[in-house]
């Protein structure tokens, strides 16, 4: 990756808040990965597990095989995608609860596997991962993902996804291939989460099997639910707020679980459309339409 020379003020700021700036970008990617699944009306609780798979895959590829960062990140996307296919193909033909239940299980069994295998460093996790990722790779990935998702949301595919979310039966009757869209969305979301995990492993240099459990999965869900699903920008807004909140209010840091838990409850019960309710239009169609 080419290094840009940054003005001194920004350089100082980055030095102080480096970790925060990195985690904003990584959480943004995770929020997008959650958005992709929720956008087709499904609920996956495996985003943290996919992130963990990506983190371990990329870390092992660089540590054991000496792969370069882009190659390792490609691995971080493909391996979670394979896991998504295995879990998703049987469950997505059934009603939505099956995917939710199976993906909660995935997170737990994966933790068990990482803890009990010497190859993945056991309970201690992996350390000494080269810190090759940085501002450019994180925000570059976020930008590319965002642009792709905006293009998808404004296309025919985006309309189909929205139709599925609002009324699956009607969407199916209109000829939308429901299982294909759902599986595609799950695989894409696993790739995004895996990418976020890979980037995270390569900025923090240390990963542990306990970072990708149930709490992490629920926190990722709270990003998307707080922001909303009107456009890909909404979940990123949610991620930014929920990442900055504990930094601004230091006293909240010990109560993260309470905060994300209540946000989910409040968001689902009282503001099902999230904070950013603006909905994106479609290319070639005037924005005049009944809301």
């Amino acid at each position: 990756m080419p290094e840009f020379v940054l003005p001194e003020v920004i350089d100082d700021f980055l030095f102080t808040y480096q970790n925060l700036v990195y985690s904003l970008g990584i959480h943004g990617l995770l929020a997008l990965s959650m958005y992709v699944v929720l956008a087709v009306g499904q609920l996956s609780l495996g985003q943290a597990a996919f992130m963990g798979l990506g983190a371990y895959a990329s870390a092992l590829l660089t540590l054991k095989l000496g792969w370069s960062l882009p190659a390792a990140l490609a691995g971080a996307m493909l391996i979670p995608a394979a896991a998504a296919l295995i879990i998703g193909s049987p469950t997505l033909r059934l009603s939505g609860v099956y995917l939710a239940l199976a993906t909660i299980g995935l997170g737990e069994v994966q933790r068990l596997a990482f803890v009990n295998s010497d190859f993945t460093g056991g309970a201690l996790g992996l350390s000494g991962i080269p810190t090759k990722a940085g501002l450019v790779s994180i925000y570059g990935s976020l930008l590319v993902a965002l642009v792709l998702l905006v293009l998808v949301a404004r296309s025919k595919i985006g309309r189909a996804m929205e139709a599925m979310r609002e009324d699956e039966l009607a969407a199916g009757a209109l000829g939308i291939n429901l299982p294909a869209y759902k599986l595609g969305a799950l695989v894409a979301s696993a790739m995004l989460a895996g990418l976020a995990g890979g980037l995270n492993a390569h900025v923090s240099s240390f990963i542990s099997p306990n970072d990708y459990g149930f709490d992490a999965a629920v926190t990722i869900l709270s990003f998307a639910l707080l922001g909303g699903l009107g456009s890909p920008f909404a979940p990123i807004l949610g991620a930014v707020i929920l990442t900055l909140l504990p930094e601004v209010l230091r006293s909240l840091a010990n109560y993260r679980g309470l905060v994300s838990g209540s946000i989910i409850v409040i968001a689902v019960m009282f503001m099902p459309r999230g904070l950013l309710i603006w909905r994106m239009g479609r290319i070639g169609v005037s924005s005049r339409r009944p809301s």
Partner: peptide, 11 residues
């Protein structure tokens, strides 16, 4: 499902 998920994390 999501509401009870948030409730679970909270509790």
């Amino acid at each position: 499902l999501m509401v009870t998920l948030g409730g679970t994390l909270f509790l």
